[in-house]
Design a protein around this nucleic acid. Structure first.
Lengths: 115, 115
DNA sequence: CCCCAATATTATTATGTACGCATATATAAA
DNA sequence: TTTATATATGCGTACATAATAATATTGGGG
């Protein structure tokens, strides 16, 4: 992004990563995993979601290297798969929060002018 | 993401940001803008794309606060809108590159074992 | 081997989104 | 005001993706 030209393939990989992060439900999964590794069943309970949906999203996250997993008996234990993730989400969350605050401030000053 | 629970609204905002970043063409736009601010026409030329498409993607990026713009005569000059972006893309690109290398290494060792 | 529990996969349907084309808006110049 | 240039918007089509329900698979215990 900075200065180097990325190949189409790399660009597609990076885009996929962002795209896979761009789903509220998957963000909730990652948020849950950030508090500790969990089995599919634990995620289903924690997120109050249905199991096939959780499995499918986990599969996508796994594909993109955003989570990793290990077997444990008949269960699969999933965990955050990329140390970059915490930093990344922190960045975006902070920035989004700042932006929300800016919007709020604008809204308030607009209300102060108008009525 | 780290420890705090995000509201549904914030989660949706963050997800939208990631989703908007998750399109190769929009990444190319940002990559181009990272080398300096540009008008729509300059982007069209630089990316060899058609104008309405560029305008539409710029509109989305603007919505999400990922680019900003100013008027200059009859033109609009767009630029990177969030200082976080460079860091962010750097992170993801590096991580994606590492992952690609891992995949490559796995593939090679698999080939070494198999035949 | 059979059964049960945990997880994954498939099929279906509904919704979202990108692209290209045509067209609308805006601003500057004649 | 008319014309030309730059940018934005609307529309239709093709394709991607999410949610749900039903079903398959995998591994452990009896």
């Amino acid at each position: 992004m900075t200065h180097l030209a990325l190949s189409d393939r790399t660009l597609e990989l990076v885009a996929r990563r962002f795209r896979y992060l761009g789903e509220p439900f998957r963000l909730r999964i990652l948020q849950s995993l950030s508090r500790g590794e969990k089995t599919v069943g634990q995620l289903v309970e924690d997120l109050d979601a249905n199991q096939p949906n959780v499995s499918k999203h986990l599969q996508m996250l796994l594909e993109a290297g955003l989570v990793s997993r290990r077997k444990e008996g008949t269960s699969r234990v999933y965990s955050m798969g990329d140390p970059m993730l915490l930093t990344l989400c922190d960045l975006v969350c902070r920035s989004a929060r700042e932006r929300t605050e800016e919007d709020l401030a604008e809204l308030q000053s607009a209300q102060a002018r108008k009525p």
